[in-house]
Simulated scan of single mutants.
Amino acid sequence: MTGARIGFILNGQPVQVEALPGMTLLEALRGPLGLSGPRFGCGEEACGACHVRIDGEAHPCCALPAEVAAGRAVQTVEGLGDAAHPHPLQRAFAAEQAGQCGYCLSGILMSAAALLEANPAPDEAAVRGALEPHLCRCGAQNRIVRAVLRAAQERAA
């Protein structure tokens, strides 16, 4: 079985992948492209673990056909920052101890990054609204909200 070859920008770099029939963007990212940041949670776009940014906006990708990425810019948590140059969100999440098990955090970070790009100075209600689609069973929601607000303050300084 062969699929369509699609090209897109992944974390700032051009990539091509053979999207087999029925392949989701999450499957393409985790399979042939070898990323582990976006996670499979529910498979129904309801938990937020699979969120990535597509052209700057946060989207679940567990049920999104891989072909949707063609010609677009896709960012995963791997493209947010690294140990040498962490993103303000990554620094703030560490400082606020906002993660416990970490399973949901990559999706939360993608939604938070999209929020801060669209609204550099969100209030608590805006942060909670942006993170509404995300399930965190560890009970770290308040620390997560504090971390996003902290990152916004850091970026403004």
Rank of each mutant, 00 (worst) to 15 (best):
residue 50 C to M: 06
residue 44 E to W: 12
residue 39 R to I: 08
residue 49 A to L: 13
residue 29 L to D: 00
residue 46 A to E: 14
residue 26 L to A: 00
residue 43 G to H: 01
residue 34 G to P: 05
residue 52 V to N: 06
residue 44 E to T: 13
residue 43 G to L: 06
residue 34 G to W: 10
residue 42 C to E: 05
residue 41 G to I: 04
residue 36 S to R: 15
residue 37 G to I: 00
residue 42 C to N: 04
residue 44 E to D: 15
residue 33 L to E: 10
residue 28 A to K: 00
residue 54 I to H: 04
residue 55 D to W: 09
residue 33 L to I: 01
residue 44 E to A: 14
residue 40 F to S: 12
residue 31 G to S: 09
residue 48 G to I: 00
residue 41 G to M: 02
residue 45 E to R: 12
residue 36 S to L: 15
residue 53 R to C: 04
residue 28 A to M: 07
residue 54 I to L: 15
residue 47 C to V: 10
residue 39 R to F: 09
residue 34 G to E: 12
residue 39 R to S: 09
residue 28 A to N: 05
residue 46 A to L: 14
residue 29 L to A: 02
residue 51 H to C: 15
residue 54 I to R: 08
residue 49 A to P: 04
residue 34 G to Y: 05
residue 39 R to M: 12
residue 38 P to T: 06
residue 50 C to F: 03
residue 50 C to K: 10
residue 36 S to A: 15
residue 37 G to N: 09
residue 28 A to V: 08
residue 29 L to K: 02
residue 40 F to Y: 15
residue 46 A to H: 13
residue 49 A to K: 00
residue 41 G to P: 05
residue 43 G to S: 08
residue 28 A to H: 06
residue 44 E to P: 10
residue 35 L to N: 07
residue 35 L to Q: 07
residue 50 C to Y: 02
residue 32 P to M: 03
residue 42 C to S: 10
residue 39 R to P: 07
residue 29 L to V: 01
residue 26 L to K: 03
residue 26 L to Y: 09
residue 38 P to K: 07
residue 47 C to T: 07
residue 40 F to C: 12
residue 53 R to D: 02
residue 52 V to D: 09
residue 54 I to V: 15
residue 42 C to T: 07
residue 35 L to I: 10
residue 43 G to Q: 02
residue 43 G to C: 08
residue 52 V to A: 12
residue 51 H to G: 12
residue 50 C to D: 11
residue 42 C to H: 04
residue 44 E to Y: 13
residue 49 A to E: 10
residue 48 G to D: 06
residue 28 A to S: 02
residue 27 E to R: 02
residue 31 G to V: 07
residue 35 L to A: 05
residue 54 I to Q: 05
residue 26 L to V: 08
residue 32 P to V: 01
residue 48 G to H: 04
residue 53 R to L: 01
residue 40 F to N: 10
residue 35 L to V: 04
residue 54 I to T: 05
residue 44 E to R: 14
residue 47 C to Y: 06
residue 40 F to K: 14
residue 29 L to Y: 01
residue 30 R to D: 01
residue 46 A to K: 13
residue 36 S to N: 14
residue 38 P to M: 09
residue 40 F to H: 15
residue 34 G to K: 12
residue 51 H to F: 15
residue 32 P to E: 06
residue 33 L to D: 01
residue 46 A to M: 14
residue 40 F to D: 12
residue 38 P to E: 09
residue 31 G to A: 07
residue 40 F to M: 13
residue 36 S to K: 14
residue 53 R to T: 04
residue 51 H to P: 11
residue 52 V to E: 08
residue 35 L to E: 10
residue 37 G to V: 03
residue 37 G to Y: 08
residue 45 E to C: 15
residue 36 S to T: 15
residue 35 L to R: 06
residue 28 A to F: 07
residue 27 E to Q: 11
residue 49 A to Q: 08
residue 46 A to R: 14
residue 42 C to K: 01
residue 50 C to S: 12
residue 54 I to M: 14
residue 44 E to K: 13
residue 26 L to M: 05
residue 45 E to V: 11
residue 35 L to K: 00
residue 30 R to E: 06
residue 44 E to F: 14
residue 53 R to Q: 11
residue 39 R to H: 14
residue 39 R to D: 03
residue 53 R to F: 03
residue 26 L to F: 08
residue 52 V to T: 11
residue 42 C to Y: 01
residue 37 G to K: 06
residue 49 A to Y: 09
residue 37 G to E: 03
residue 54 I to C: 11
